[in-house]
Each structure stands twice: as C-alpha cells, then as structure tokens.
C-alpha cells in the first residue's frame, strides 16, 4: 500500500546573503491514509519548512514530496492548514471564517449545506452559540478551535498543523488535545502535526518523527500503538513515561548533546 504522504530524501536550502542555508537534508516521512504523524525536533530545525513543502507552497531542492503517489507541484485545494497564530479574519464572524475555504475550493455543496457543515463542525469543537461572534470576542483557545474547523471544513485529504496549541496555557491545551481526538473520530483525516511538546506528540499521534538539528534529517521514528480516541490518563502510565524518556533522549541527541 502506498502511503498517502510520502516524503523521500528531501533536501532544501534557503538563499541568504551569506550563501545557501541548508535546513533539510535527507528528510523521510511516510504517513498512511488516516495516519497522524507528529514531527518534533530542536527549534529552528526546519519543521515549518516541512509544512510548506507538503502544502505545495515551496518546492524541495532535491528529493520527492508525494501525495497519494503523485509529486506535489503546487498548492492544491486538498490541503487544510492551521498555525500557532489562529489567523482568523477580524471582519468576519466565526461562521464566515470557518466557511472561507469553501469560497476558494470548488464544492458541490449548496450555500445552505456549506453553512450547515460549518455549524456542525463548530458544534463538534464546542463552539455552538458562538457562530455570529467576532474573533476578538473569543478566547485564545476558542479561536484555535475555530481555526481548526476552518482547516477541515472542505474535507482536505491532508491536514497540516503547525504548532496549533503552542501559544495556549496548559489546561486549554489539554482540552484541545481531547477535542482533536473527537474531531478525528468524527471527521477522519490524514495529518502532520508540528509540535514542541513531547506529551502532545505521543497523546495525539500514532507516529512520532524526531528530526535532527539543522540541516534536519529523520533521526528517529516511534510508533504509538492503539487506534481511536485516547484518555488523558494514558499520559501517566509507565508506557507513556518510557516513550517520553526515549523521545527526550533523542531530542538531546538532535541538539548535539550526548544522551544522558
């Protein structure tokens, strides 16, 4: 079976005044359909570059980015993105914000069906009753929930999440982790999550990819067994502690420090 997302030997460098700055060098990530990969690594190691490559906003210097076996040649309507900054449009209501991708992507849905879908997604993430509010009237966590709805409203085949929970406080973040599981159960997607948070990676993903320091290559891949929604309690089991320990050591290696 071919993987839905298949990144093979990708190399990429940014042109800077002082010559090329290599950020990715020998990156491999494979995510099967319905899979959810978390990508962790030292800061500045090129994780956000990876999201732009998958989204088709950038082309790699070498190597291949394949979606369903076909090389990515440019942006496609089949991608959904959410960032650390929820980037909601202030002049639109929450409902109108969520419906934004449907104005770009060709869809067979009627206007009424589009609104119906947006409303049901908002209800799914717990934003029922906030449809007609402005983004400025919502808390940070609520804005991120709305941003998530916008990322999946057009049923993308790939969902790219670039540290979407990074700016939230710990309790709000855990709430959103659980929301993510609920969303995944109702609206199955294939996703890549960029994160700094190891607990987040093992709680949400079924595969954790550790990148080395810059230029980044795939240094370590950990599979997390078990399908379906998880409970926060699972973060406090001995297995979870063991996984976190291994990942922490891998990060230390990636940072160029010897494993403790």
């Amino acid at each position: 079976m071919t993987d839905l997302i298949d990144i093979k030997g990708v190399r990429h460098a940014y042109k800077t005044a002082s010559g090329p700055l290599p950020v990715l060098d020998g990156l491999d990530v494979a995510v099967p359909e319905g899979g959810f990969a978390a990508v962790v690594g030292p800061s500045g190691c090129g994780k956000s570059t990876l999201t732009r490559l998958i989204a088709g906003l950038m082309m790699p210097d070498a190597g291949e980015v394949l979606l369903q076996g076909k090389p990515v040649t440019g942006p496609r309507a089949t991608v959904g993105m959410a960032f650390q900054n929820p980037v909601l449009l202030e002049w639109r209501t929450i409902l109108q914000n969520v419906m934004l991708p449907l104005e770009i992507v060709p869809t067979k849905m009627s206007k009424a069906q589009q609104e119906e879908r947006a409303r049901s997604l908002l209800a799914l993430v717990g934003l029922e009753g906030f449809e007609d509010k402005r983004p400025s009237e919502l808390s940070g966590g609520m804005r991120q929930r709305a941003s998530l709805c916008r990322a999946i409203v057009h049923k993308p085949e790939v969902l790219i999440l670039d540290e979407p929970f990074g700016a939230l406080d710990a309790f709000t973040r855990e709430d959103l982790w659980q929301t993510m599981h609920r969303v995944k159960a109702e609206e199955p997607f294939t996703g890549v999550l960029i994160t700094h948070d190891l607990r987040e990676s093992i709680f949400l993903a079924d595969q954790v990819v550790v990148l080395s320091g810059r230029p980044a290559r795939t240094q370590y891949v950990m599979d997390i067994p078990g399908k379906g929604p998880r409970d926060l309690e699972e973060l406090y089991t001995p297995e979870a502690a063991e996984r976190l320990n291994i990942l922490r050591q891998q990060i230390r290696i990636a940072q160029g420090r010897a494993a403790a």
Binding site: L57, F83, L89, I104
Partner: peptide, 29 residues
C-alpha cells in the same frame, strides 16, 4: 501582512487577486 494570512488561502491554490480581495484589502481598511 503576516505570511500566515496569505498562506491560509495560498495553500488552497487561491490567486493573488483573490488573496488581495478577501484578505489584504479588508485588513488594510
């Protein structure tokens, strides 16, 4: 204009003109 604002539409294949009308213009008002 923050690049993320452009990216949410650019990633869907929206044209520069669409991005201008839907995001850049209202944001500059």
């Amino acid at each position: 204009l923050e690049p993320e604002y452009r990216d949410i539409l650019a990633a869907l294949g929206a044209s520069k003109l669409t991005i201008f009308w839907k995001i850049a213009l209202p944001k500059t008002l």
